[in-house]
Write a protein that binds this DNA or RNA. Structure first.
Lengths: 334, 334
DNA sequence: GTGGGTATCCGAAACGTTTCGGAAAGCCGA
DNA sequence: TCGGCTTTCCGAAACGTTTCGGATACCCAC
């Protein structure tokens, strides 16, 4: 039904080879032949089949976006969409398509990510929002499939990464609170399966030491990145440390929970309790009081990841680890 | 490099045909032959090429998600992501892949949506977040490309739609405000290029009439779905109608702008001014005062759209128009 | 005239599947 | 013994491209 290269060749009175070479801008085709072919192709509305091309060229110009949980209530989606935009935009510029691959995609078909990717002959993958203990993801990384991971420092022959400088980000938060006069500064972290959690904790502890504050284990609480978890963390820390005047949360959503708890127990923010989040999700500027937070360049993370992956694919560049520097956004909660 | 069906055939000592039929569960293959083929295929880690299959089967099992503006600051993204989830999840269940197609995708390559879709040999498209005056979108719909449109009532041979019952939704909002005692109820609408705007306006006017309230043109304001536009609308309406005590905004984001303006001019919500939004985006429960709004079943819109499109593709079902009923979520702003 | 170079063009193989039509073998009843 | 039916298998074409290795024709210098 659709018009093929054969139809164009016939209509233009030339061979298939010539049509292909004319349309793809090769040199060894006469000027008027080329014009004729182009004219005929346009008249016939010829659309070369990307499928057939992929088969013979052995690449699909398609990359997959692997996310552990692309679901309604996944707590990380605020962050991920910013990255998604960046990935999509840059990939489009570079001539690549983006297909979504998630656990729902793979699990429904009872196949691993890797199986999915190789069957679809994806050229590469960008991985984000995954937990380090995801059993399937390691398979992809080990397979030598060209990949870029977001927010996990994994560097190998065919796997690069891009992430925010979380250590520095956490330091920015602590220093800010210290400068505001706080001395008993709590920390509510995300779950341990996230690489960023380790780094943010590291930054918190280093900054505390730099400020000459002794680190008490009771000032820290390990949560799960959710709002409910943030509430719980806030509650626990304040009960254990009545003198605590500031808390740094490893995500904005947890900080929201903190704000909510503070409100529930009648604490004024920032006068009674100061709060700093991490991520700068859109919510944080709408909530009252608006949330001071560590801004991550989400869109840029996406473009950098896309650039790196396509660089590996098209130019054989080596994968690298890229750190993007975060920024403190001071608002009403401090 | 990758193992092909030919390798499996050789290793199992059977023909290519038999491997294909054995692995695809056809009947005319002996029990032990089948077992042997399956075993060899597993040992060799054979992964059939979806590309080659697509070429011969003439379908890709891939559908495109067309959005006008998948960009950072697009005002509709809060709404669209809920739908995206639903589409993706259901499509995965049904064995289809999802690729993102946006103006950035198409424009960068200087081709129309339709060109993109036919080149990629997509099986169908789901269209959302587009303006009715988008010059390219009509081309897709006219082409007879199997499609489902979200939020635009376009029904044809190969094109169905799914949307919220916006007329009913708007009525819910107005009736709610009326029941609360308001008699001068303003309406800030979205831009005219959106089909939903017309319907919401219609619902507003009908409900006002039902409540026995005379409709004054000065009670309405046409805006653009953005927060800034909502502020402006709120300001204008209040200046023109000092006795106005309630405003219904055609989107939550505009309602946010309304809240902001009210706060700026010292109006208490809801005592001085009551506000109702539309969409029930996540923000609306976090802002203070939290926003009363008309909830749309976003996730369900996605699953319904996916079901309809795949029904057309796999079972030859006729496209239809589906209306999902909205719901009033009463919160603090009324 | 001849040799070699250049500018154009083309035939055919290859990519990895699915599937149509038929073939071989075994069995059974007449 | 033979025809026909069933079961199991296979050869080859087809899907729509790209590309390798030539082939043709022309021109120019010798």
């Amino acid at each position: 039904m659709p018009v093929t290269i054969r139809d164009v060749a016939r209509a233009a009175g030339v061979s298939i080879t010539t049509v292909s070479r004319a349309l793809n801008g090769y040199e060894d085709v006469g000027a008027d032949t080329r014009r004729k072919v182009e004219r005929v192709a346009a008249e016939l509305k010829y659309r070369p089949s990307a499928i057939a091309r992929s088969l013979v060229m052995n690449r699909t110009k398609t990359i997959g976006l692997l996310v552990s949980e692309l679901t309604k209530e996944h707590s990380g989606h605020h962050f991920m969409f910013g990255v998604l935009y960046g990935i999509h935009d840059r990939l489009a510029e570079l001539g690549y398509d983006l297909v979504l691959v998630s656990t729902t995609t793979a699990r429904q078909r009872l196949v691993s990510y890797l199986t999915f990717c190789t069957e679809r002959r994806l050229d590469g993958v960008i991985v984000m929002g995954i937990r380090m203990d995801d059993p399937y993801i390691q398979e992809v990384l080990d397979s030598g499939f060209p990949s870029v991971v977001i927010d996990v420092p994994l560097l190998s022959e065919r796997c690069g990464y891009v992430m925010t400088d979380n250590v520095f980000g956490a330091k920015l938060a602590v220093r800010h609170l210290f400068a505001k006069g706080h001395r008993v500064i709590g920390f509510v972290n995300g779950h341990v399966q996230a690489a960023v959690s380790r780094e943010r904790r590291c930054g918190y502890e280093e900054a505390m030491a730099e400020c000459g504050l002794v680190g008490d284990p009771d000032w820290q609480f390990v949560s799960d990145f959710t709002e409910r978890g943030g509430m719980e963390g806030c509650k626990t820390l304040l009960e254990k440390n009545p003198d605590m005047t500031a808390i740094f949360f490893a995500s904005d959503l947890m900080a929201m929970g903190g704000l909510r708890h503070a409100q529930a127990v009648g604490l004024k923010v920032p006068s009674d309790l100061s709060v700093v989040g991490f991520d700068d999700i859109e919510l944080s500027q709408y909530v009252t009081p608006s949330l001071s937070t560590i801004h991550q360049k989400r869109y840029e993370m996406g473009t950098v990841a896309a650039d790196m992956l396509v660089g590996m694919l098209d130019q054989g560049k080596a994968p690298e680890g890229r750190l993007l520097s975060p920024q403190l956004f001071e608002r009403q909660s401090t």
